[in-house]
């Protein structure tokens, strides 16, 4: 099929890029442009010019969960942790905004899961968590979680079948103040609360039985009010996140 009139071709390309060409006409343009270099050139002309309108829109940092799910979708076996751009931190995007997007989807699952999770040790400051549970004989998965711009890190060993997890803390997080650090399991439906992380020493926590390693395990740590998130969903910034890999 050919579009004869040069004027019509130009206008179709312009309206395609602007977006006022829609529905079947839009798909038809895409088919035509694939086979027609001159039409593509018109399209690119408008894309390169009108695209500059996008530069006047204020940037908004997306929720960290977007990156985490994106990694799942590209089938990344080895999650690449994102650095938090330092210069963006003082901008203090309101927390409800950071988490609002996933709240709807996560709420149902998180609430269900939370109502079933085991009681976690209270964690006021010092070496806490420790339930003195013996470490799983053979931890099936291991995760290293490190908080950027600090020495704080945890080695997490998980055994989802046994519903067990042990955590060893190292380093220090001087900025903690009157806060707790809470661990989340990022399920396809959203974050599931696991418990408060120790800032030193070792501890163990029960894992909700519903969680399975199928499709990979991604963990995240958020900064929460002392004692943990009051809502059952993350309310503070994500300090770090990463995958748990099968232990050798």
């Amino acid at each position: 099929m050919k579009l004869q009139s040069a004027q019509l071709r130009r206008m179709l390309a312009a309206e395609y890029v602007l977006g006022t060409l829609h529905g079947a006409a839009r798909r038809r343009f895409e088919r035509l442009a694939r086979a027609d270099a001159a039409l593509r050139a018109e399209q690119y002309f408008w894309e390169s010019h009108l695209g500059r309108l996008a530069t006047v829109v204020n940037p908004v940092t997306p929720a960290p969960t977007v990156w985490i799910s994106l990694q799942r979708r590209i089938g990344s076996g080895n999650t690449v942790p994102l650095r938090r751009p330092v210069k963006e931190q003082p901008k203090a995007v309101p927390m409800w905004r950071i988490w609002a997007g996933m709240a709807a989807a996560a709420a149902v699952v998180a609430v269900v899961m939370l109502s079933q999770r085991g009681t976690l040790p209270e964690a006021p400051g010092g070496p806490q968590v420790a339930q003195q549970a013996p470490a799983p004989a053979a931890p099936a998965y291991v995760a290293q979680l490190k908080v950027p711009d600090s020495t704080m890190q945890w080695t997490v060993s998980l055994s989802p079948e046994r519903g067990q997890m042990t955590v060893a803390a190292a380093g220090d997080y001087p900025q903690l103040g009157q806060h707790s650090m809470e661990l989340w399991w990022i399920s396809p439906q959203g974050p599931v609360a696991i418990g408060l992380l120790p800032v030193q020493g070792k501890g163990s926590m029960p894992l909700p039985k519903e969680l399975t390693a199928q499709g990979g395990i991604t963990l995240a740590v958020s900064l929460e009010p002392q004692g943990g998130s009051p809502t059952g969903k993350p309310t503070g910034p994500v300090l770090t996140s990463g995958p748990a890999t099968q232990a050798a």
Partner: peptide, 14 residues
């Protein structure tokens, strides 16, 4: 890919 996301995601998200 991660660096590209870091550099551009907030712009595109806005």
């Amino acid at each position: 890919f991660a660096q590209l996301y870091e550099s551009c995601s907030s712009h595109l998200f806005g």
